[in-house]
């Protein structure tokens, strides 16, 4: 998620302090995002420097500053919203690199590694299911829907491991050694 546009989006409705921006994110995404207040302030400063946000009124007590969207910020936000999420798919497939490397040294038998990974994904699915249940019970629909997306992604990861293990992935590498 782009922090820049996330912040612009939240400022669209009303001027906010830095810590209010953080709280809004937390209300939407339930502590699943790893941004600290320092990053929010840095982002706001850079957005101000680039003319996308501007101070709304003078600094309040303890130096608190309200920010609002500038017309340029509004334009940048609208453009971003209108754009579909495209470009290369962002993967961070540690496991695949592990498997590729292990295939060169593990005598072609990656079944154990695949089984361990599958089990980890099953546990993740269980954790996500419980989180979704909790989010729905607490009426946190935004979080529940995010978790649902994560469930589907993890299911795909699991299916990938299934494909790799049923095509005996790794054994062909051993033959050419």
């Amino acid at each position: 998620m782009s922090l820049k546009y996330g912040v612009l989006g939240l400022l669209k409705g009303e001027p906010l302090h830095g810590y209010e921006v953080k709280n809004r994110f937390e209300a939407m995404l339930g502590g699943t995002w790893d941004v600290n207040i320092g990053q929010i302030y840095t982002t706001l400063q850079r957005l101000e420097r680039d003319g996308l946000v501007r101070p709304a009124g003078p600094r309040g007590d303890r130096g608190k500053q309200l920010y609002e969207l500038s017309p340029e910020g509004q334009k940048a936000l609208d453009q971003w919203l209108a754009q579909p999420d495209s470009g290369p798919q962002q993967l961070h497939e540690d496991i695949y690199v592990k498997l590729l490397l292990a295939a060169r040294i593990a005598n072609g038998d990656l079944q154990g590694m695949l089984a361990r990974q599958k089990r980890a994904y099953l546990q993740r699915l269980r954790d996500l299911n419980r989180l979704e249940e909790r989010a729905r019970r607490d009426g946190r629909l935004d979080l529940a829907r995010l978790v649902r997306g994560a469930l589907l992604h993890t299911e795909a990861d699991l299916k990938w491991m299934d494909e790799l293990s049923s095509e005996r992935f790794g054994t062909e590498g051993a033959k050419t050694e």
Partner: peptide, 21 residues
């Protein structure tokens, strides 16, 4: 696989990565 069912904090289960400016 016998799966565990502990109560985990949301951030221990799912994390949205952010890109900074």
């Amino acid at each position: 696989a016998r799966l565990e069912s502990p109560e985990r904090a949301p951030s221990d289960v799912i994390r949205v990565r952010t890109e900074e400016v």
